[in-house]
Design a protein around this nucleic acid. Structure first.
Length: 576
RNA sequence: GCGCCGGUAGCUCAGCCGGAUAGAGCACCAGGCUUCGAACCUGGGGGUCGGGGGUUCGAAUCCCUCCCGGCGCGCCA
């Protein structure tokens, strides 16, 4: 509908330019849905854009354009020239009515807007190392990444959700050491470091009361570490005293924490297709391959006993270490190898969802993979800022290592999946997300927009139930007649519904799922008042054609709400 | 110091590929249930869109600059 009008408009502009003999190229003219409904269904700035090159007043140009479009009577009911020279188009009412029929015919398919060129896309997100429960930052990333994946699927892309497990670094080693230390403490063979030492700085005692202090200085202090140690004591007694920290201690901790993370994600309705282990890159020699390839291209050199990437050669601010003096790779080398594998596995688009703290290193990975001959422009970074916590108007300090943070599990148990997801996805990624704990703990979450949208859906379902009970039956898509819908608020709803495919396109292509949340709030914000005012808009009445038309509207609203909710991973309850 | 991201109503935030009178939720004030669901609805107050300059017929939106806040700038990941 919009496409047709746009085409007609461009023809009119081209025609006008030809008739004036101007050599101006046809400029880009905008055709948009105006905010103010009084400005018609669509508005264009064509005359304003043309005013300059034609050196004529915009309103005069608008008048001529309007003349050229008068003939489109089957599309347009009215054209108006307004303000400085806007063209306001009012479509024939039945143009909007067509939307309802389309939704009734397509059902959930209405939300499916295939891209011209579908791609094999990988979305990598969360990728948290299993050193403890997921933080709210991880929670935000999980919801963000999953929603992006859902949107991409709606665009017809073939989506793989992937979790990169960074098991080669020292984080997991420290976890093993932490568990072993707690294990020995439980057996009375080691002393826990005194609390004051665990704070910043301060001396670190070698032993206390003749017992050695094993716990690593940067160890993980959460209770869950002690619990794992307790489980090990219960199962093995003292048999593990001589076991290496990197052995069973680490193994058990890793598996246990990982399974808890997966359970958390499951509770968020998030499932990954692939868990990729960093250690596989080592085992399969990928790091060495990458190093050799970079070497061939003259991008590697040695200095101070370390191996460096000549990234300044690639236009970046400085060179970086690939292999430490110890012979151990830094995170960078496996990261490059990992992204190279992403391409080799056939992904045509690679989306990394990461926290703002990873921003700096990203260009190095991209540049290096590009230097290896892959199309680096196909790697995208979706960066998100952190989640801050407020309680009683004060920011709550959070520390991962000391485990003084609110976990996804805790919050989830308070507010549930739907509210959690809505809250996390409703702001754009590159802004801080301020989480008000008081709101989470005390206030009534019924005030939350998530419920408002779900309520709108439940109400539409309820009306359909009523219709069935009254023996009215649901409208048949094939013979559906929406023409009895003539109230302005009904036209408004139709317009809003018609926007949906465009919205999905925009949200998916910009990787900005928060648009969906706002759209849903707006649609529900039109639907709830409409239904509420039962006197004016009685849906089920004695006027059968009108009832059927309004019922069709209810079905369409319900369909779009359900689709939108699914795109951001919320349930669409039929009753609440 | 350099880089990235933010600064819009009392609070939390949309809007930012330039468009008409800057929006929403919460909070506040005043109303509404013999009506298909009151988890709802109606109305109201509330703004130098961080400051300044520029481009433009037109700037919250683009450019420059300054101020404030967050994050990053390791042979940590």
């Amino acid at each position: 509908m919009k496409e047709r009008l746009q085409q007609k408009l461009e023809e009119a502009v081209a025609g006008l330019l030809r008739s004036t003999g101007a050599e101006t190229a046809v400029p880009e003219v905008a055709l948009e849905v105006p905010r103010n409904p009084e400005h018609g269904d669509f508005a264009s700035n064509a005359a304003l854009v043309l005013a300059r090159p034609l050196k004529r007043p915009p309103r005069a140009i608008a008048t001529e354009l309007a003349e050229r479009l008068r003939g489109e009577t089957e599309l347009l009911e009215d054209i108006e020239i307004a303000g400085p020279g806007f063209l306001n188009f009012r479509l024939r009412r039945d143009r909007w009515h067509g939307v309802l029929k389309q939704i009734l015919l397509e059902g959930p398919g209405f939300a499916s807007v295939p891209a011209e060129v579908p791609e094999r896309v990988q979305v990598e997100f969360v990728s948290a190392n299993p050193t403890g429960p997921l933080t709210l930052g991880h929670g935000r990333q999980a919801v963000l990444g999953d929603s992006i994946a859902r949107l991409l699927a709606a665009r017809g892309h073939e989506v793989t959700r992937e979790y990169y497990f960074n098991d080669g670094g020292r984080q997991m080693r420290v976890l093993g050491e932490s568990v072993k230390a707690r294990y020995l403490e439980l057996l009375g063979r080691a002393a826990p470091p005194p609390p004051e030492c665990l704070e910043e700085g301060g001396a670190w005692p070698g032993e206390i009361d003749g017992l050695p202090v094993i716990f690593p200085r940067d160890g993980y202090q959460g209770d869950y570490v002690r619990e794992i140690a307790e489980a090990l004591v219960a199962e093995y007694g003292e048999d593990l005293v001589d076991e290496a920290p990197d052995g069973r201690f680490r193994q058990v901790a890793q598996e246990r924490i990982f399974s808890e993370i997966r359970a958390t994600l499951e509770a968020l309705d998030i499932r990954f297709d692939v868990y990729f282990n960093e250690s596989d890159l080592y085992r399969e020699g990928k790091n060495d391959e990458v190093l050799a390839e970079l070497c061939e291209r003259g991008l590697v050199y040695e200095k101070d006993g370390a191996v460096w990437l000549r990234s300044t050669e690639l236009g970046l601010p400085r060179d970086r270490v690939l292999v430490k003096r110890t012979g151990e790779p830094t995170y960078l080398l496996p990261d490059i190898a990992y992204h190279r594998e992403k391409f080799r596995r056939g992904f045509e688009r690679i989306i990394d969802v990461q926290g703002a703290d990873h921003k700096e290193q990203f260009p190095y990975v991209v540049a290096a993979v590009g230097a290896l001959g892959f199309d680096a422009s196909r790697i995208e970074l979706v960066m998100h800022q952190f989640v801050t916590l407020t309680r009683g108007g004060q920011q709550v300090k959070q520390s991962t290592r000391r485990a003084t943070y609110v976990t996804v599990d805790e919050l989830l148990s308070r507010v549930g999946r739907d509210v959690f997801r809505f809250f996390m996805v409703q702001r754009k990624a590159d802004g801080h997300l301020d989480f008000d704990l008081d709101l989470a703990e005390e206030t009534d979450w019924k005030k939350n927009p998530a419920y408002y949208v779900q309520y709108a859906h439940a109400r539409a379902c309820s009306i359909e139930r009523r219709a069935r009970e009254a023996g009215l039956g649901l409208p048949d898509a094939g013979s559906f007649d929406a023409s009895p819908l003539r109230l302005p608020e009904e036209t408004q709803l139709l317009r809003k519904l018609a926007e949906f495919p465009d919205l999905v396109r925009r949200a998916a292509d910009s990787r900005e799922p928060h648009h969906v949340a706002y759209y849903l709030r707006e649609l529900a914000g039109q639907w709830n008042p409409y239904v509420q005012d039962g006197r004016r808009h009685r849906i089920l009445s004695d006027d059968r054609p009108l009832s059927l038309a309004r019922l069709g509207l209810a079905v369409a609203v319900r369909t779009v709400l359900a689709s939108g909710l699914a795109l951001i991973g919320l349930s669409a309850p039929e009753r609440m």
